[in-house]
């Protein structure tokens, strides 16, 4: 069995809420961080992989190498990326993503505040709307939050 149970957009990638709340809540077996910058930084990539608790299986991949990484994992999978365009790219590659949550997008870079700690640029909003064609896209910072559908904000 290999199933993407959730794709999360968060510019902090892995952080406390993800480790403590999301991974146990989703009963995720594997977390795949899809980020070209992290994948191209051997030092940070190594720390991310080697310092992880033994209870979490973490992978780091670039967008281009995603399918290679994906075929080597099993179970319930959580994807994390910084921006929606990454998931749009994966869907165009044929990857099946049914549910996407926005968990954290910082201000700056011409981003406008959408809701609490979620800020989006015009391009990111366009990408999110495109994603909403094929996936459920919600703002949900932690699992305890009620999901807010992106099309109803």
């Amino acid at each position: 069995m290999r199933e993407i149970i959730l794709a999360r957009i968060d510019d902090r990638l892995l952080h406390g809420q993800v480790v403590v709340k999301w991974i146990p809540h989703l009963e995720a077996d594997v977390v795949i961080i899809v980020d070209d910058e992290l994948d191209n930084n051997p030092f940070l990539k190594k720390v991310t992989l080697t310092a992880a608790p033994k209870t979490i299986d973490i992978k780091v991949t670039s967008v281009d190498n995603f399918s290679e990484c994906f075929k080597n994992v099993k179970g319930r999978i959580l994807l994390i990326a910084k921006i929606p365009q990454v998931f749009e790219n994966l869907i165009n590659q044929g990857v099946e993503i049914k549910r996407i949550v926005l968990g954290g997008m910082g201000s700056g870079d011409n981003r406008k505040n959408l809701y609490r700690n979620i800020h989006v640029s015009t391009e990111e909003m366009a990408s999110l709307i495109k994603l909403a064609d094929t996936a459920e896209v919600d703002i949900q910072i932690i699992p305890d939050d009620k999901p807010r559908n992106i099309l109803k904000i």
Partner: peptide, 12 residues
């Protein structure tokens, strides 16, 4: 904690 912001900033 591994993966938390204090950790992430420190490894940076």
């Amino acid at each position: 904690m591994y993966g938390g912001t204090p950790f992430n900033v420190s490894i940076d």
